[in-house]
Amino acid sequence: MTLIDGRCDDRFGGVREALARSLERDDVGASAAVYLDGEAVVDLWGGHADEARTRPWERDTIVNVWSTTKTMTALCALILADRGELELSAPVARYWPEFAAAGKERVTVAHLLSHTAGLPSWEKPLPTEALYDWEAATSALAAQAPAWEPGTESGYHAFTQGYLVGEVIRRVTGASVGTFFAEQVAGPLGADFHIGLAPEHDHRVAPVIPAPMPTGEGPAMAAARTLLRHYGNPAFGPETANTTAWRRAEVPAAGGHGNARSVAAVQSVLACGGEARGVRLLSEAGCEAVLREQSRGRDRCLGVPLAFGMGYGLNGAETPISPNPRTCFWGGWGGSVVVVDLDARMTVAYTMNRMLGGTLGDDRGIGIVLAAYAALSS
């Protein structure tokens, strides 16, 4: 049996078993966490932090979690909305006047959060370095016309959502999204999650291990072609996350570094009515905003049926992630995932270094989530 470290309440022993199976079959290194009523009932890790399996995955190992980062950026926007500093139904141009160009004067903040703004990628060819140049990335989006009528359907904004929401946060607060998150969210909660990683943390990073390139025809090849068609500008690959430039930059849709504990610790605030472990970041009403459905249907970029609320995917027939209706979620390229259940007051997170599958996760994280729900119903 694979060695698993950490702690796990007896009731949630199935989560430990699910993580052990994953490490034996598919994972190199990974972590899993479950928070219930704001407290950790599962905090586990195991395997190795490097592909050569020479360095163990430690308690403080962190990894790039790709689009699970989006839940952190969205939470910042929800906090500002709850404080009355940001109106989700307001035009983006109220806060970012330049954004009104090219027919976007009626695009709202909610459109940005729900991937319905019509700006899923950059039309203007950009070098990879533009991902690390905030002004270049945001000004190009401000000048761009929507690819479809905003608000009518979703088209996953894989990278652009972070710059769009992040610039609104910067215009409202005067702080970058990484700074706002560190000072207003991660700091008060004591959570080891970073949007823009300082050099002193580099030694703790488990480099991402890219999934094998698909061969032949099939779902994996189709997913790869979809990624290239919609998100090939700027050019990038999984190995981009292992560069110093990526770690230092604030890439608020895909560049966050953390582990399952830190992901679940932050999102437990949302699951628990805005307060966890004595720290209140939102009101209960502010938390409910995440569940306001903004779109439902086949996503024009990912090609699968999805429902989006305010910055998170919503539980439903399209994506039955939970038995409880008031549940939201999202995951990262290659497998990381977080599920936030406002009914059960439970948050489940899984992070890993070995990427598999496409943009919507795989059986490893789902196995952790299913085991957590099985414990709840036992």
Results as ranks from 00 to 15, higher is better:
36 L>A: 06
225 R>A: 14
160 T>R: 06
22 S>P: 00
201 H>K: 08
329 F>I: 03
1 M>L: 07
191 A>W: 04
304 V>Y: 12
135 E>H: 09
326 R>P: 07
255 G>V: 07
249 A>T: 06
138 T>L: 01
167 E>C: 03
61 T>N: 02
282 L>V: 08
135 E>Y: 01
363 D>H: 14
136 A>F: 01
376 L>H: 11
263 V>L: 15
88 L>N: 04
306 L>M: 15
82 D>G: 09
305 P>Q: 13
189 L>Y: 02
184 Q>H: 09
17 E>W: 00
221 M>I: 07
2 T>D: 00
263 V>M: 13
173 T>P: 06
336 S>I: 10
173 T>W: 03
206 A>T: 05
97 P>I: 06
47 G>H: 08
11 R>W: 00
226 T>K: 10
276 A>C: 08
158 A>M: 13
134 W>A: 11
263 V>D: 00
145 A>Q: 04
45 W>T: 00
284 E>Q: 14
255 G>K: 06
217 E>W: 10
133 D>S: 05
109 V>Y: 07
313 G>D: 07
145 A>T: 07
151 G>E: 11
237 G>P: 07
27 D>A: 14
68 T>S: 13
304 V>L: 15
310 M>E: 11
36 L>I: 06
103 G>C: 11
165 V>S: 04
363 D>I: 11
110 A>L: 11
3 L>K: 10
250 E>M: 12
172 V>M: 01
375 A>Y: 03
217 E>A: 15
123 E>V: 14
40 A>Q: 03
57 W>G: 08
213 M>A: 11
46 G>D: 04
218 G>H: 12
155 G>Y: 12
359 T>C: 15
356 L>S: 12
372 A>Y: 08
289 A>T: 14
288 E>F: 02
98 E>W: 02
61 T>H: 06
265 A>P: 00
324 N>F: 12
312 Y>D: 10
347 T>Q: 02
313 G>F: 14
335 G>Q: 09
20 A>E: 13
247 R>N: 05
125 P>E: 09
257 H>V: 08
315 N>M: 10
65 V>E: 02
133 D>C: 02
263 V>I: 14
119 L>V: 12
303 G>F: 04
176 S>T: 14
245 A>T: 12
174 G>V: 10
311 G>K: 13
89 S>P: 03
321 I>H: 08
315 N>A: 13
167 E>S: 02
316 G>Y: 11
67 S>R: 09
220 A>D: 12
105 E>S: 15
262 S>I: 06
308 F>D: 13
136 A>G: 02
4 I>D: 02
376 L>C: 05
306 L>H: 10
162 G>C: 01
29 G>D: 10
187 G>S: 04
190 G>C: 07
226 T>W: 03
315 N>H: 12
353 N>V: 04
94 R>D: 15
148 W>D: 03
29 G>V: 05
244 T>M: 11
